[in-house]
Amino acid sequence: MRRAIGFRGVLAFSSVLPLAGCTGDLSALDPAGPFAAAIADLWWLMLAGGAAIFLLVLGLFLLVLFRPGSGRRISPSRWIWVGGVVFPLVTLVALIGHGLIRGEYILNLRIGGDPVEVEARGSMWHWEFRYADGARASRGVLHIPVGRTVVVTATSEDVIHSFWAPRLGGKIDAIPGHAATVRILADRPGIYGGICSEYCGTGHDGMRFEVHAHPAEAYEAVLAGLSGEREAAR
């Protein structure tokens, strides 16, 4: 994941970066764990490739427009077959393969032993989290141990919501009648932002939550201090 820094350096000249000071506790560009980092890394890679392709196509267009005749040495069918078929095909097959491999990596990555299982229940308009099969619960704050893969199972009691803690991993929709999972992981202790990212009615704006990442020992203590689901749901 360290490679990301390299890409950032390379791209520092592009007008993007001055604006993209990666701060804010919801920024997917400021990963705090391997899941989010794997994706941020993919983004920087695609940004670099995309920028190159964009400049190439735009350059060719401006060239043939302002230097008429400059592209005439290459036959029309070569223009089309090389530029329109072979080049995109090769690039895309490589990228798609890479994307799938990375997806498989994210779906199977286990760090720190058996994953911790938690349940995220969305309802209009707050999140409730359950631990240890519902024996413990918390509202608005998800507690996780540092350095261990956490599998979040998202469900909903009413409409569709979406669980998203951008710095820790991707999002997963909380759909009534379904239970889908996403993996998150925090490398270091801290408080990370989370937000509902599927439109769920007028309270959608405020349907935020926090993820508190605790060191392993502290985590047990925090869990022990939580009440059961009924009290949490109050």
């Binding site: 095909l89 097959v93 799938l100 997806g103 498989e104 779906l107 199977n108």
Partner: peptide, 17 residues
């Protein structure tokens, strides 16, 4: 025929997860 490349994932990707 080229577009059958879309199906290459069946070779190794997670089947039901």
């Amino acid at each position: 025929i080229l577009a059958t490349l879309c199906f290459a994932g069946v070779l190794w990707l997670g089947m039901c997860a």
